[in-house]
Amino acid sequence: MNESEIGRNYKDGEIICREGDEARSMYVIRSGKVDIIKNSSAGELKLTTLGKGDIFGEMSFFDHMPRSATARAVGETVILSIDKKGFFAKAANDPSIAFNILEGMSRRIRSLNDELARYKKDSGLIY
């Protein structure tokens, strides 16, 4: 890892966090890409690929549920982890620290809505 890079280095295919695990951190991608994967009866489903600057793993911070998906490095990837306790301690004094995360989550919900609408249309569930 470069002497000037902060965070942790992950090799191609390495798991950053696993679906069903307890969440103690969320993550910021410093460089590289990360696949977000969901296991289903049909096998592995890739939900999305995230890139530099994206934040993931934040859902479990707020809903206190286990990880909803697995995050896997695509190529050499550098990830900075964010501590759960430290985040909430900051947010208690300064709730605006969560604004950027809320923006990201809103974008994701918007894109999921679009996808859901497409899926329903394609599968004939709406007319």
Binding site: E3, S4, I6, V28, R30, G53, L80, G86, K90, I97
Partner: peptide, 22 residues
């Protein structure tokens, strides 16, 4: 550490071009 994390959450990611050593 706490500032690096706070800035990253805010979307301010200090690039490697600025960091002398980690």
């Amino acid at each position: 550490e706490h500032l690096i994390q706070a800035l990253s959450i805010e979307g301010i990611n200090i690039p490697t071009e600025v960091i002398q050593r980690s």
